[in-house]
């Protein structure tokens, strides 16, 4: 059995693969990938997630809109949220934290930084 389930929302396939590789390195996680906000909305009801990692700047709906949805839904409001941002998009990061993100990570990041944040959020 997988110990924890993570939903990873990111529209760049390469970034997604890299983050996934970093997570896989940590052990046996069930990482589910979504390439867009819409896909995330579809995947959310299919299983219980322990953590959501999302990019902010995406087509269709952006990360902030996705987070707002999660935070205002009883079923999902408890899930910790990590936002992936860039050093430039400080304004969007502030907005994300105001909306209830529990942590953020700035691209480019180091593998152990991301692992630290994930461990902290999952309390492992």
């Amino acid at each position: 059995m997988y110990s924890k389930s993570i939903l990873l929302v990111e529209d760049s396939a390469t970034t997604r693969a890299l983050i996934r590789a970093v997570i896989d390195e940590m052990g046996d996680f069930n990482t589910v990938e979504a390439s867009s906000g819409f896909e995330a909305l579809k995947l959310l009801p299919t299983q219980e997630f322990d953590l959501v990692i999302t990019d902010i700047n995406m087509p269709d709906i952006n990360g902030l809109e996705l987070m707002n949805f999660l935070k205002n839904n009883q079923r999902y409001s408890h899930i910790p949220l990590i936002i992936v941002t860039t050093e430039r998009s400080e304004e969007d990061r502030k907005r994300g934290m105001a909306l209830g993100a529990t942590a953020y990570i700035t691209k480019p990041f180091k593998a152990d930084e991301l692992q630290e944040v994930i461990k902290k959020e999952l309390q492992i």
Partner: peptide
């Protein structure tokens, strides 16, 4: 407005 990104 609080969920709008800067661009939006």
């Amino acid at each position: 407005t609080k969920v709008l990104s800067e661009y939006e």
